[in-house]
Write a protein that binds this DNA or RNA. Structure first.
Lengths: 248, 248
DNA sequence: CGAAATCTTGAGTATAATCAAAAACGGTGG
DNA sequence: CCACCGTTTTTGATTATACTCAAGATTTCG
């Protein structure tokens, strides 16, 4: 599996192949998809709630998040994006964005116009299916996220998001030896989990103490995957991955 | 607007027209869509997590909910379905269901085979778009649901779901004079909001005391829509309705 | 090396959970 | 029409998870 920044590393194709069978022709069409690549530094909005974009953004490297701000000024992150994700693919069919997307780390982003996307879908109807499937899995992730925030507490809630991230990162080749780079701050985890920063800190300390996770800077290592899965009540079915790379 | 049970009342078409412009031809094709209609009593699963259905279900009358059960045995309702919804439309592209769907009240359900749906989509490509759009709006509702459960508390969280239900019911003609029939128990609201039944009860009492809602049996009346919207921090943009029936 | 961001700690508090039981409601059958 | 049963709603008392506020330690990065 080619590493990030390697010339052959195309996270979109890796991602789609993890959920869909592509023909060579379709793969080539995807490789030729025109995009305007841009490097964006950390903590910048890529698109904002209320925007009416005419293009979607493919995340090539780095981490972004989809978030909403309540009228009371609180932020809720509804999902983390990893390379290969198109966080605002929905804007192809929904004119007004109902959420914002921001970078978490420095990112390389490829902007693809809706015209080019529609063109691709018209020429390759199965790619329409693949993209539709992609957005349906995104919805499945949101459902699981609701369940996590609504019905799990403390350590269990945190463990579940970590499991999800690990499995998804594995699918695009970004996990090695149960370890990955995860440049997400405790404050961002708080906004994702519906906690406060202080509480996230205490939960993480407990998880370290229990040997569920090991952290060194932004590097996360999972010493015992089965135990983390168990604590997080994690079942990867909802990610609808083709193979059982789901085992991580 | 035709009332439920009136012969012309087709909630699917009403629903799609609230989010998409249909041509006469497309409307006729939808009307002719073959379906096996069945009456299902309250509190029954229609489909279960893990199923691999070969058909989807269109809710014709009554209320259903989409839910998941955690390994710890807790239930989380991730959305309520109203007439016109197809709660498991995603199964057209995702083989294994990652959630269950259950009736809340007695329901009339129309089962439509995936073959018939695929057929319809092939013959009317714009209907593919309409359905895709439909599932994207469902995803938007999940995002908002995460935000609600993660970042709003007590009265505000409850007010928000009520606002959403009212607006969606309005779009299919089931709200009159800011009132509707809402056969959802407090225990079901608890599973939807991430609360306990006891807490839902106390929240509802407070809302009644503050004049935010009036209930008589399963009938819900909203005396002051603007105030409810304000308390629930409700902005209907995420429902992506065509017109401003969003005002309710 | 120094400023800013991030992480950590402590003490006091609030929202919501838990447990347990009583009251009210809704439908059914006599 | 009313008695009866199961479900749903309501109440009270106690507890727990997570929040708030505030300040200090550490890391990161220019």
């Amino acid at each position: 599996m080619s590493a990030p920044f390697h010339p052959d590393y195309n996270p979109l194709i890796l991602k789609l192949e993890s959920i869909f069978d592509l023909t060579d022709e379709e793969r080539q069409a995807l490789e030729k998809l025109p995009m305007q690549v841009q490097v964006i530094k950390a903590d910048q909005d890529i698109v904002r709630e209320g925007d009416r974009p005419s293009r979607s953004c493919l995340l090539l490297s780095g981490f972004t998040c989809v978030y909403k701000i309540t009228a009371g000024g609180k932020r809720q992150i509804v999902s983390f994006n990893i390379p290969g994700d198109i966080p605002d693919l929905q804007s192809l069919h929904l004119k007004v964005l109902d959420n914002s997307v921001a970078t978490i780390s420095q990112c390389r982003v490829g902007f693809i116009t809706h015209d080019d996307l529609r063109d691709l879908c018209n020429r390759y109807p199965r790619i329409t299916s693949a993209f539709w499937r992609e957005t349906l899995i995104e919805a499945a992730i949101f459902r699981e996220w609701v369940t996590n925030v609504g019905r799990r507490e403390g350590v269990s809630r945190m463990a579940h998001v970590l499991c999800e991230l690990l499995v998804r990162l594995k699918a695009v080749g970004l996990v090695e030896d149960h370890a990955c780079d995860l440049p997400i701050t405790q404050s961002e985890f708080a906004d994702a989990l519906g906690f406060t920063t202080v509480h996230v800190n205490r939960v993480l300390q407990q998880m370290r103490a229990e040997g569920l996770i090991v952290t060194q800077g932004t590097r996360l290592t999972i010493p015992d995957w089965d135990r983390l899965k168990q604590v997080g009540e994690f079942d990867p079915t909802y990610l609808h991955l083709k193979s059982d790379q789901a085992a991580a």
